[in-house]
Amino acid sequence: LQAFIKTLTGKTFTVEMEPSDTIENLKAKIQDKEGIPPDQQRLIFAGKQLEDGRTLSDYNIQKESTLHLVL
């Protein structure tokens, strides 16, 4: 599935991932794409901060969901 990552500066980019991917995997993909170390990334979806060990499906993240990236 493709999801949108929106930063506080208003920049939006897309990442490809599977519902079974962990938040940790997602942070690694963001690092590959944007060069931001995972330990500096905080991802917010539906008002909740996402925990590394959980999966996208745990948070009911669907295709074309928008996640907010806070540094």
Rank of each mutant, 00 (worst) to 15 (best):
L1E: 05
L1F: 15
L1S: 06
L1A: 05
A3Y: 15
A3K: 02
F4G: 03
F4W: 09
F4M: 11
F4T: 14
F4A: 06
I5M: 02
I5F: 02
K6T: 14
K6R: 11
T7C: 10
T7V: 07
T7L: 14
T7A: 05
T7G: 06
L8I: 14
L8V: 14
L8C: 15
L8T: 14
L8P: 14
T9F: 12
T9D: 14
G10F: 03
K11D: 08
K11T: 08
T12D: 05
T12S: 10
T12L: 10
T12E: 09
T12Y: 09
T12H: 08
T12I: 13
F13E: 01
F13I: 11
V15F: 08
V15G: 01
V15Y: 03
V15C: 03
V15L: 11
E16C: 10
E16D: 11
E16I: 12
M17V: 15
M17A: 09
E18M: 14
E18F: 14
E18C: 10
P19I: 11
S20M: 11
S20G: 12
D21P: 01
D21I: 05
D21G: 07
T22G: 03
T22Y: 06
T22H: 03
T22Q: 03
T22I: 04
T22P: 03
I23V: 13
I23E: 01
I23F: 02
I23W: 02
I23D: 00
I23P: 01
I23G: 00
E24F: 14
E24L: 15
E24I: 09
E24N: 08
N25G: 07
N25R: 14
L26C: 01
L26Y: 00
L26K: 00
L26G: 00
K27N: 00
K27W: 02
K27Y: 02
A28Y: 12
A28T: 09
A28P: 00
K29L: 09
K29P: 01
I30M: 01
I30W: 00
I30C: 00
I30G: 00
Q31Y: 15
Q31R: 12
Q31T: 09
D32W: 10
D32N: 11
D32A: 14
K33V: 13
K33L: 15
K33P: 01
E34S: 15
E34F: 14
G35M: 04
G35Q: 05
G35F: 04
I36A: 03
I36P: 03
P37Q: 06
P38M: 15
D39K: 10
D39N: 12
Q40Y: 10
Q40T: 08
Q40H: 13
Q40V: 10
Q40E: 10
Q41H: 03
Q41T: 03
Q41N: 02
R42I: 15
R42C: 12
R42A: 07
L43V: 05
L43Q: 00
L43P: 02
L43F: 04
I44E: 09
I44D: 04
I44P: 00
F45V: 05
A46L: 12
G47E: 05
G47K: 03
G47Y: 04
G47N: 05
K48M: 13
Q49H: 12
Q49D: 13
Q49M: 14
Q49G: 06
L50H: 01
L50S: 01
E51S: 06
E51H: 07
D52M: 05
G53M: 08
G53S: 12
G53E: 09
R54P: 03
R54V: 07
R54I: 05
T55G: 03
T55L: 11
T55W: 04
S57P: 03
S57C: 04
D58S: 12
D58N: 03
D58A: 04
Y59E: 02
N60M: 11
N60H: 09
N60Q: 08
I61M: 07
I61Q: 04
Q62F: 10
K63S: 15
E64L: 11
E64P: 04
E64D: 15
E64S: 13
S65K: 08
S65M: 11
S65R: 07
T66Y: 08
T66C: 06
L67W: 03
L67Y: 03
H68R: 06
H68S: 08
H68P: 02
L69R: 00
L69S: 00
V70I: 13
V70K: 06
V70W: 10
V70Q: 09
L71K: 05
L71F: 09
L71G: 06
